[in-house]
């Protein structure tokens, strides 16, 4: 009985929390920058593009670690609808982590803007200029950003629900620092 794991690997946990902070920052920077005309607009946009591209790279690494290490099983006694909600929301989060930066990059390409990151790095255009395409991408980047934020709030609420109400080890599985996991160990033995 050695296949069952109760925690994500340390690399996965590190990626999770680093990316969580980065993505939240991206959402706040995004809505903050488009609503200001102050001098901070310029650095905010530069950070948005640079950090967003970093998230794309991290998300791809994370996807690989997910396939390689897998994920601990959810508690057996978790109601089916909750399990389904957890799985679907995790797919959606991966799709957004990868999709949002690609949409941003593609939107700038279709707008004939140079995609310049900090450090004088230019990303190549991934689409030719087009009014209709850039409008479509703009709308997708805009509406999905709000969907992303809503999903993150639900995800955080669910994580806290596991941690504070159910005490079922799901939160501990991704906790930023190793937390004693009596509960999971108990379930593990019980499950055997």
């Amino acid at each position: 009985m050695n296949a069952i794991r109760h925690h994500f690997s340390p690399l996965q946990r590190l990626l999770h929390w680093v990316m969580a902070i980065c993505i939240l920052a991206m959402l706040f920077i995004g809505v903050g920058m488009v609503s200001t005309i102050m001098p901070k607009y310029v650095p905010l946009v530069a950070i948005h593009k640079t950090l967003g591209t970093a998230i794309l790279v991290l998300a791809l690494i994370r996807l690989v670690t997910r396939f390689y290490y897998g994920a601990p099983a959810l508690p057996a006694d978790l109601p089916e609808p909750m399990k389904l909600a957890a799985e679907l929301s995790h797919y959606a989060l991966y799709a957004l982590m990868i999709g949002m930066p690609l949409l941003g990059w593609a939107m700038l390409s279709a707008s004939a803007y140079p995609v310049e990151l900090y450090g004088g790095i230019y990303l190549p255009a991934i689409l030719p200029q087009s009014d209709s395409v850039r409008t479509l991408l703009w709308n997708a980047h805009y509406y999905l950003a709000f969907a992303f934020f809503a999903l993150i709030l639900m995800h955080a609420a669910a994580a806290l629900f596991h941690a504070l109400v159910r005490h079922d080890g799901v939160f501990e599985a991704m906790a930023p620092v190793p937390i004693r996991d009596e509960v999971t160990r108990v379930e593990y033995t019980a499950a055997e």
Binding site: M33, P39, K40, Y41, V42
Partner: peptide
Amino acid sequence: DDPFPAARSSV
């Protein structure tokens, strides 16, 4: 430190 280019870029 000219505040215009940033404002113009945003608008």
